[in-house]
Design a binder for these strands. Structure first.
Lengths: 264, 264
DNA sequence: TCTCCATAATTGTCAGACAAAAAGTTGACC
DNA sequence: GGTCAACTTTTTGTCTGACAATTATGGAGA
């Protein structure tokens, strides 16, 4: 399929025309849909760069503005990305980050509570730990070890410790080698863990957190699935208890000082 | 903040100008960002309708094309939606459906395997069942009961049964009253369960599936958290065993005959 | 008050324009 | 031959103005 010389690209034009003239679908959506299909089908392989707006417009028989709107759609879907400094659009697979950003706004606007996020994490994190115990490689272990070492050093710096806690759990997820697992938990974790800065600050619970991390690391590095799950269960449970002890409302929405999502 | 009479909306204009003239950010992104902030901050409340493109353009001091591109961004983020038949754009909270659509493409392009999805489900679904046992209301139970009844009627229709299976698990998730839980599992389920049409077809496992659904329903309706979790564990485990028995490769990517994602 | 129609507003699309940034080309120079 | 700077062409981001088709709105008439 040639993008450069538009003269013979009649098929696609026809497709767009048919769909858009049915008025069921605006032209920019039709274009976006066709492009998405081609990307998903591998006709436009990930890593390649998209043709220029003008050639796309020619090819589809629509105006450049229409193509641009279609591009915005695909971009937001994570199928296309423009790298800074680069001019061309690159075709990409949607990344956890973008999905995560979208889920964040969803959670914020839907008044999701800490309890709800906790329910998700208390299901996923132990499974992560267990899987990590089975699948973690040497480099994974090294990263986790390093994280624990840095946590030890930052034991009195609450905000640093929170960052490191998030990182710890992300590293576990990465060690499972399971993308789906990672994507499912990333957002929830990012929204959840910062909230417990308060808990830890009030309870001085850094040592307890570190103990759990150490135990989990040991279990994973020795391939002990059961032990990894067990300690993660406790670790997550600690959060709930800590919340109670610190007298924080577990059932309040997470709307507080949340960082504003950014547009890639 | 007045949208209609643009003459005095200088502040926003200035904001956009500063940001875009810095060249760090195209104008349409700046507009999208400002609108997103206002929505998240509740200044533009969910349910309200967005001003017309022209008044937005006036307000921000940009052209209509620019506003349109910004709108495409917000639309794809799920913060704005146009209802069919309606002309105006309504402000909305992102729904599970849209996030789910995005995750689907991510999973497809990243060659996610059945095993990986299964790992996620085997963590989340039992938790769903357990929580549902604690929180399900009468209407929730009615819906699940009805689903089971229809499944009984469709016991010989594999494709219908798959649809009903997906629905069953979605109903459980809904019964937890936990949005986060629902969003976390919806996509995974939608991608995963259809794959087992084959398994069920080969093994004639409809009865076994139905038994599990019935047991889970009973546990939930009697508030038995432990039993609900237990049967869901078995139910999910069945999938894995079924896969083995049917000699399907658990570790192959889910790229096969997947429905093409559609643009809302 | 309710219904129906003319009028106004809004959306989807297009064509053409222009400055600024990136990419591609050329040619001088080492 | 290889390198770098100047020049040209593309491409992007933005704007203006236009038009048909659809949707909203205000009144006239029942």
């Amino acid at each position: 399929m040639t993008w450069q010389n538009a003269s013979e690209g009649k098929d696609a034009v026809a497709t767009i025309r048919v769909e858009s003239r049915d008025r069921t679908l605006p032209a920019f959506r039709a274009v976006a849909r066709v492009l998405e299909r081609r990307i998903l089908a591998g006709e436009l392989p990930v890593g390649e760069s998209l043709p220029s707006e003008l050639s796309l417009a020619d090819h589809f028989g629509v105006s450049r503005s229409t193509v641009r709107e279609a591009i915005r759609v695909l971009e937001q879907r994570g199928l296309i990305r423009r790298e800074k400094g680069r001019n061309r659009l690159r075709i990409t697979a949607p990344q956890a980050k973008e999905i995560s950003a979208q889920m964040k706004t969803a959670f914020l606007l839907q008044e999701t509570t800490f309890e709800q996020l906790w329910e998700v994490l208390s299901a996923i994190e132990p499974a992560c730990a267990a899987t990590a115990a089975l699948k973690a490689t040497e480099p994974d272990l090294k990263l986790i070890e390093d994280n624990i070492r840095r946590s030890e050093a930052a034991i009195d710096d609450v905000s640093a410790l929170v960052e490191l806690d998030i990182e710890f759990h992300n590293l576990l997820a990465a060690a499972t080698g399971n993308n789906a697992l990672q994507m499912s938990r990333e957002t929830v974790g990012e929204l959840f863990y910062p909230a417990f800065a308060k808990v830890m600050a009030r309870l001085n619970a850094g040592e307890r957190l570190l103990l759990a991390h150490r135990k989990i690391y040991e279990a994973i590095s020795s391939g002990n699935e059961r032990e990894a799950r067990l300690w993660m269960d406790r670790h997550i449970g600690d959060f709930q208890r800590g919340c109670d002890l610190a007298n924080l409302d577990f059932r309040s929405p997470i709307s507080g000082a949340m960082p504003v999502a950014n547009h890639g």
